[in-house]
Design a protein around this nucleic acid. Structure first.
Lengths: 236, 236
DNA sequence: CAGTGGTCTAGACCACTAT
DNA sequence: TAGTGGTCTAGACCACTGG
């Protein structure tokens, strides 16, 4: 593990273990440099990483402060690849409805830069949180990259397998959100009535080399889904 | 303007003017260093900024590539403070329903770290896109920071005024999303029927020093609202 | 004005990609 | 194995905050 990642991890662990709250001050840069035996740039890089993750904020001339999530039970929109990270406290399970190799739909082909007669793994799952339906998920994996899947893998964390088992490196993703009404079929899977509100999240996942490898459409049960998102002004 | 921001801006402009597409290769680091007469660290910092904004992606051992948004007409969830940036092509207008100084609701007080008998500016607006209702917006501004507002300011971009007119520096924000059904009142403002789907986005905006100054609840017309979001694996 | 974070440089060395 | 991006350092100097 890289030095700056290591430092970031230790600072984050420190914040969690000492249950520091929003606004609590961390040691000054010079102290951190001493403590971690690292240069200013390296410590700064760690802090920038934590700032990007929404863990701290830095104020020039003043100090480094803890930034804390106040509300509980929200799903992070930016780090929900398989959830694992955010919903530790919750019981997450999956029912695999379908799993096969097929040709992509026109929409999937477009999003994955495929021809309509290329091959994809198709996965359809219903995911549960504490026994309640959370979402219906349909995924198309480019078979050129995701060379193998089976029901066991798919009932656990697909992304964990893709990274550890297949050695693929995930780079970035584009997400598209729509609010609409549930169709009959979706309502059936989610145990709601047709026409009820839903949130659709379409995501195109790319490898570090920029190749799209997974197109997913996730339909959330509006009763179970609360999302949060942390933004920095640097985006403007 | 800082050197690394200047460089980032020029690269972004270059991409737009030459209409570069996803995957197109940019000059190598050494060339950029020459071209902008900057050190490796400075150019790297520019590139990291652009990567964070979703404009490019970098591949070690290979090069720097353009990352492009494929779909049009989506609102960026991460840079929609007053929209201005993303929906240039669209006609955005506002109706100011209410504007006054009052005591915050319990919820607003909690999110702004205020006492219930402190003072806030309360703003209620309906926003239109190409003449169609886009959203209903209720905002509570801590009067200790946002010392003055009037109907003219509020019918234009409040955030522009806060930064340019009042000299406040915006740091970061926490956003909370919920999907639900429209109430009678909301439906009235948005020209939809009660019970139709809606997306509520609650946002707490903070200054660079970490103080929350604005709590907003925006209720989107589901027919008009499509959102997008770009994520990096660094978040995990 | 002392303390603190931010920018920028030059250069050494490392890790990955493509050929 | 050449080319390319990533990490890390030491140090100079700048810009903001707060007493």
């Amino acid at each position: 593990m890289l030095k700056y990642q290591q430092i970031a991890e230790e600072i984050e662990t420190y914040i969690e273990e000492h249950e520091l709250q929003q606004g609590d001050k961390l040691p000054v840069l010079a102290t951190l440099m001493d403590q971690f035996e690292a240069s200013k740039s390296t410590v700064t890089k760690s802090l920038d990483l934590l700032e990007k993750k929404g863990v701290i904020f830095q104020v020039r001339g003043s100090g480094i402060f803890v930034r804390r999530q106040k509300r509980k039970g929200y799903i992070s929109l930016l780090s929900n690849q398989g959830f694992k990270k955010d919903l530790d406290e919750f019981q997450l399970t999956s029912d695999v409805i379908e799993l096969d190799i097929r040709k992509p739909t026109a929409e999937a082909a477009r999003n994955l830069n495929l021809e309509v007669d290329d091959k994809v793994y198709y996965v359809k799952r219903v995911r549960y949180i504490n026994g309640e339906t959370l979402c219906l998920e349909e995924s198309f994996f480019n078979k050129a990259y995701v060379t193998y899947l089976n029901r066991e893998i798919v009932s656990e964390s697909i992304f964990h397998y893709i990274q550890e088992g297949l050695g693929l490196k995930i780079g970035f993703s584009d997400m598209y959100l729509h609010v609409d009404r549930l169709t009959e079929e979706e309502a059936g899977y989610l145990g709601l009535e047709a026409g009820a509100p839903k949130l659709d999240v379409e995501t195109v996942f790319h490898l570090t080399n920029g190749q799209p490898f997974d197109f997913s459409v996730v339909t959330y049960n509006y009763e179970q889904s609360q999302f949060f998102l942390q933004a920095n002004s640097h985006f403007q």
